[in-house]
Amino acid sequence: MTTDPVLVVEDLKMHYVTRAGTVRAVDGVSFAVARGQSLGLVGESGCGKSSIAMTLLKLLPDNARLVSGSIILNGVDLTTLSEDQMRAHRWDRISMVFQAAMNSLDPVYRVGDQIIEALEAHSASAGRDAMERVRELFDLVSLDPTYIRRYPHEYSGGMRQRAIIAMALACEPDIIIADEPTTALDVIVQDHILREMQAIQRSLNMSMIYISHDMAVIAEVCDVVGVMYAGKLVEFGPTTEVYARPIHPYTKALMSAFPSVRGEKHDLTTLPGEPPDLLDLPAGCAFHPRCAYATDECRTSIPPTVQRGDHWATCWNPVDDLGGE
């Protein structure tokens, strides 16, 4: 595994302009993903994690504004590309796996034909070569090759998600963004698919960004994790570090609110309040109204970055042991 970053995101800001005001969906996010690495973005609904996915792919609705920042994929800044240039990059260099698997496949075309179309559109291969490639891909995601000539509605939920993954892999992209790839699936199917995705990623030395609300899924599949709250990354670091020694009170609260079937049955803690209104964010640290450790500084000033090696968080009152006065 080389350490040169495949994707570098710098100070990314994406806002939605609505009638009620400006929604700061992604508000100054920076991170890098190395080749072969898998990054997890975890957070609750409305924290901006899916907006990041849409921004990276530049699949934004009309009312979205890319305010600032750069997205450098293999030395090319995606923010400067035209829609035509971007279309050439999508699938080819950066591709995606979305949650609503049913909507990602066109119901009137055979699944195999849809993958071939994607291959031909990027002139990766055509004709018999393309068919051969589809066979390889089906094999890679453990789909029965007889299903190549079937329609999406003949697939089960898990098979559809496999087909989507096959399509995402078709052009051997540098990075795949998976937004809640297994959320609608049952645990057993989820387990199969996550394991396969991990194996494929390792064998192809590909980078991944997993986006999920599920702390457990992220813990299992990601090397590095970023915790998001109100459009910002509030904590980032190697997964083992973040889970074992969270710095930010929000991360700590998420961990202790998450039930597990294994190990000791610990008491679940409840976070007071609700996630903030992105139209009207609290001053200072956006988390302060719900934070048990909040002080006056938190209410007025943007929190500083607390660095612990390659693990950091933005907080005035870090809750890891080193942070004690």
Binding site: V187, D191, L194, A219
Partner: peptide, 8 residues
Amino acid sequence: AVPVPDPE
């Protein structure tokens, strides 16, 4: 099959 929120 249930994932566990513990990377280790």
